[in-house]
């Protein structure tokens, strides 16, 4: 493996992801913000593939960039919020100060985190030809009960979303 090329692309995708995230939180229009967030998710998918999680990378593109963000954009279009509002929706001085302090505290934790020395990498869980099996084997043996409970959670969420979004008979 060409280590220099790998490192270069790792930093490239990571920096694009962070730059897209910054663009995402600073856009006024919800549509532009959603599209920048999709860009962040594509870069994260590339990082997953570089960290030997190829299946999760594919699922990231399909589920997050494909399904969840389409639902967000659909709601933005449905509620006709595509235009940025005239008044800025960024909070005033108090909100900005709080956000800045929280951001500084978390950045300090980052610096502490970056001083940790990590041990040498072990062998990757998946080789290039056997990608899904290392994920699916624990999913259907060790974590079978949480997997089934997750399906119940999805059912409850679907029913709840329909009930919440439906117009009631006596509510205008």
């Amino acid at each position: 493996m060409n280590t220099l090329l790998y490192t270069f692309h790792f930093y490239l995708f990571g920096l694009i992801a962070i730059a897209s995230a910054v663009a995402f939180v600073t856009r006024k229009s919800p549509v532009a913000a959603a599209l920048w967030l999709v860009n962040t998710m594509f870069c994260l998918s590339a990082l997953y593939v570089m960290l030997d999680a190829q299946f999760i990378g594919a699922v990231q593109v399909l589920v997050y960039a494909g399904a969840i963000m389409v639902v967000f954009l659909f709601v933005v279009m449905l509620l006709n919020l595509g235009q940025a509002s005239d008044v800025s929706d960024i909070r005033g001085l108090g909100g900005r100060l709080t956000a800045g302090l929280v951001g500084l505290a978390m950045l300090a934790e980052l610096v502490a985190l970056s001083r940790i020395r990590f041990p040498q990498l072990t062998q990757a869980v998946s080789d290039q030809t056997n990608v899904v099996n290392p994920v699916s084997a624990p999913l259907f043996h060790q974590y079978l009960l949480p997997f089934e409970v997750t399906s119940v959670v999805l059912l409850v969420a679907v029913v709840g979303a329909v009930v919440l979004a439906k117009r009631g008979p006596n509510v205008s």
């Binding site: 995230a21 995402f24 939180v25 909070r91 909100g95 956000a99 951001g103 950045l107």
Partner: peptide
Amino acid sequence: TIGVVGVLTR
């Protein structure tokens, strides 16, 4: 951190 700052400011 960017996500937290976004939640706090928007």
